[in-house]
Write a protein that binds this DNA or RNA. Structure first.
Lengths: 343, 343
DNA sequence: AATATTAATGTGTTCGAACACATTTTATAA
DNA sequence: TTATAAAATGTGTTCGAACACATTAATATT
């Protein structure tokens, strides 16, 4: 386990050649005789040489720039922790010569996204890390990045997985299933349950599908109704929620598919089991006083941090990046929420 | 956010001195005139200099050795993932010149622990990372490490926290509380619940205390009974468990305080809510078929991996290590278990 | 056989920090 | 004032990998 660390010089000595020759063999630069190449390869086989990533990087000595596209945290509080994650990663990798620059766009404005995107691409960074709340397949961001040789990665919101697309995030279908399992354990059989959406987001259908698939698979015959609300002006929604609850007064469990569980929870009786997403302040408050039973943690901070981290260590130390990194789906109750507030 | 990266040479130029002088100021080696020191400090204040950790480490160019004390995974399967975590960390940091060497001891044998410990200390590593299933306060491991200037850190099993002791692990009291909350949500009120211990382990009392504290705080008047089993020969325990279940046939929820929930679960009716610890194969199997409802994940693999990682990055890049790193307490059900199997 | 051409190999420099060592400047004693 | 010690400052080398460049050996051409 603790063999000596071999250097190129060591290999050269062992093979009876100069370090230049070893270098050419290692990097396949040619201009090496068969005999020399063989003797170097022989040594390499015997010693399992691993280049010192520190020395390598020192030589490269490049400043790496990572641009990050994300919705403006001022428009949607959900993105605050993601932004924090970026700042933390920026701090961590700064002394290694990695800079992180965020570009904000308006969550549901395609034009704003496109502008931010163009601006970021124009600056020719080494990598572009993007959280997209809008459909981007139609845009030519992929083409532009390929042209300019910008490494492209996505976090938080899945962009259809293909070979060469990197994604850091969660399986939303599966998180819907987890919500379903939790609810099904907490309510009596033959209950009436509701899936509640607030506003329109790409991913909520995935969550509802996952939710329903669990009940189908388990052959649980609870009734599941779906309902959507739009949060334009607050009073509006309150009235809507109240009338919904009056009309459906036998509901014993609710699954809110995004971070807005707190809006719904305020109108609920305590005996309704409620499951939502994300550790926003108002959600946590309601989790602690028992109006919300569980929150599913999408870990936006960690996603952002890992996104930057993977890219940085790839550039710095040549670590490979896997196409898809799915974070564990954490079940949060009032008793373990504290561990996740700053992680 | 993306200012230039300053080097010592840059500072020297800006301050109008040589790099040697800058170096002396930075490292407080003295032999610098007041005037020179001032002009260097002035520059330093303006540019927020951060030394390139890569270059620094390349110069140091030391081989760091980390010895790890842990129970032999062959004696207790719980430690297999911890060992995996060590191997993974060893692989990750090998090319940086960090070597990891495990020393196994028999889980409950103080003599065996002491021997392993002495052997490890004798080899004068840079750090000693220990998972202790036995009381060690009486041993002079602390003194020896201090004498030989070995950085000492613990993972998995808490050693009383003091200023200069590093611990990576979980809050066991709190994990007991989480088990309590889950159980209380899943059973009807005024239920009869059991806390079940297998064998004798230091930490199980902490978990039971946490468990009971939750019910006390919430003023839930469920009945909680405690029971211990010793797993000498398997048939023995089976009989004991069966008779316990017959005698207490009104139990509707059980909390097993270590990784041996599977032993108990096999004898249970499915309608008893069961919560245990750790993702051992047999536990996972029972989680999937519904006999176990939730497992609390102590993440031994991650603990070991992080333990090595913290030490390595401390040595390599001078990252500070916090005294206590408490991992989040994960609630695992059959629907999110897959994410944790290899993490 | 002498020269040109290409292949093969070796040498030297760079990256930034750290530190050993050499040199210059200033202060002190004879 | 000169010699000498002490303080201050500058220069050079090292770490390992990468690559530019110089040098040597082998082959081809006339």
């Amino acid at each position: 386990m603790d063999r000596k660390k071999y250097t190129i010089k060591d290999i050269a000595q062992l093979a009876g050649v100069s370090k230049g020759t070893v270098d050419r063999v290692l990097h396949k630069r040619g201009k090496v005789s068969k005999g020399a190449e063989q003797s170097v390869r022989l040594v390499l086989e015997q010693i399992d040489y691993q280049p010192n990533p520190i020395a390598r990087n020192l030589k490269h000595n490049k400043l790496y720039r990572i641009c990050v596209l994300l919705p403006n945290p001022k428009e949607d509080l959900y993105w605050i922790p993601a932004h924090d994650g970026l700042l933390e990663a920026a701090k961590e990798y700064k002394s290694f010569g990695v800079t992180v620059k965020p570009y904000f766009y308006h969550p549901y404005d395609q034009v704003s996204f496109r502008q931010a995107c163009e601006k970021a691409v124009e600056s020719s960074p080494d990598a572009l890390l993007a959280a997209t709340t809008i459909a981007i397949e139609s845009l030519d961001i992929f083409k532009h990045c390929k042209e300019k040789n910008i490494l492209l990665a996505f976090f938080n919101n899945h962009v259809r997985a293909k070979q060469d697309r990197i994604f850091i995030g969660q399986d939303l279908h599966q998180s819907g299933r987890i919500a379903a399992q939790l609810l099904s354990k907490l309510v009596k059989r033959n209950a009436i349950l509701a899936v509640v959406h607030f506003d329109k987001e790409q991913h909520m259908q995935l969550k509802e599908d996952g939710f329903r698939s669990y009940f189908l698979e388990q052959h649980i015959s609870d009734t599941i109704i779906s309902k959507s609300f739009l949060t334009g002006s607050d009073t509006d929604v309150s009235a809507e929620i109240n009338s919904f609850l009056v009309e459906n007064d036998e509901i014993s469990g609710v699954f809110v598919t995004n971070s807005k569980a707190h809006i719904f929870a305020r109108h609920c009786k305590k005996d309704i089991v409620l499951i939502g997403y994300d550790l926003l302040e108002p959600n946590i408050e309601l989790l602690k006083n028992g109006k919300i039973d569980f929150l599913i943690h999408q870990k936006p901070k960690r996603q952002a941090y890992l996104g930057v981290g993977f890219l940085a260590e790839h550039f710095l130390f040549g670590k490979p990046i896997s196409n898809e990194y799915l974070l564990p789906i954490d079940i949060i109750s009032s008793e373990n929420v504290s561990y996740h507030l700053d992680v």
